[in-house]
Amino acid sequence: MKLFQSKIIFALLVISFSCTEALCQEIVPEKERGLWVARQIDQEDAGFVNQVSKATMTLRNKQGQESTRSMTIKSFEVEGDGDKSLTIFSSPRDVKGTAFLSFTHALEPDDQWLFLPALKRVKRISSNNKSGPFMGSEFAYEDISSQEVEKYTYQYIRAEEVLEAKGHVIERVPVDPKSGYTKQIVWVDGETWRIGKIEFYDRKRSKLKTLTFSEYKQYSNKKWRASRMEMENHQTGKSTELIWTDIKFGLDLTERDFDQNALKRAR
């Protein structure tokens, strides 16, 4: 009994040290602790207003052969709804000028349009295919789309050091049956709520991929962004490295820069 009590005290101590927020998690019931962590991550990201950055993906197969994709990604925060984003590809050169407009929603399907520059055609596409590979990479569409809290249910697993800070490990289960995953395990630091690592489990419940975030930088609006993300597929031996550069926040952008006319202007 005594041993049991001291274990509880020890656990509480660990928890309270791992948490710097006033709303400390020992007062969050265990059942809701996972959701609480997800909300902290979401709140920390809220207020970024808009972001424009360049991204370069390097795809590597088992034999070490590489190919790259580069793009400009603009995103726009929408109050009370998911973010809007516009992705403009610049390489491989045959897809240059192809652009992708996405309006994320918490629970309804996302609205997505594709601009095909050869025909100057805008095509509305089904957002159902979230589990498919993004540009042949190890990232699925659902991995790169805006992460809304409502898209998963959560469970707290344990406290653990993440990115050299006291952190948490949570499990999240996608609400959408069209997701390619049965669950994801997320490692997040408990001070600045930076994600360190995500493990993805496929529909057969076996470990499929690991996404590692590194080279975090804090920007002038206090937001942290990883400059490097590495997605490793454990089943195929393939990997994709995603490098972010020229990250800019708070530009003079409006919702008009995220509509179908803007999609057609994109170069």
Binding site: L251, D252, L253, D257, A262, R265, A266, R267
Partner: peptide
């Protein structure tokens, strides 16, 4: 050949 300015709101192609 394209030139874009003002957050891609103006484009000459």
């Amino acid at each position: 050949f394209t030139v874009a300015w003002d957050q891609d709101r103006k484009v000459i192609a």
